[in-house]
Amino acid sequence: MTHDEHLVKARRIVASLEKLSLESDAMCVIDGAVIAGYNLGNALLHRHGVLPDVEHANTPSKLPVAPAQLPTAIQPAFAAFTELERLRLEHVRSPGACDTTLAKRAWQLLDEIRHAAS
């Protein structure tokens, strides 16, 4: 997808996330935030010439280069995305409990990525 298509998808996913409860849907908030992050992260990778429109990285752990080798301007966004991916690993894909605090943290991290992509 193109940079603009990714941003359209990300806006849709953020609107969907806003329908979820931080308290009772905490795990789903984290999972959904990573899906939004996928689109925002790839928008940034396209915008900054790291990947062409036809190539994508699912998450920071799947990047073709180490995060430290990304353009400096997008390193903070990918640092946030890395932590978001870790939350998903520990609390969505593993038995770690989820709560409102973690859901709020997921939103904070997502907002950092959104700010970078705006």
């Binding site: 998808k9 849709r12 329908k19 009772s24 849907d25 795990m27 789903c28 999972d31 959904g32």
Partner: peptide
Amino acid sequence: ERAAAFERALARLDPVEDTELFVVF
């Protein structure tokens, strides 16, 4: 329990408006 948690979240979503999370969840 996790399946039920995703089902509860799905109940808040519309499959067309919220296609992406609907499919994933």
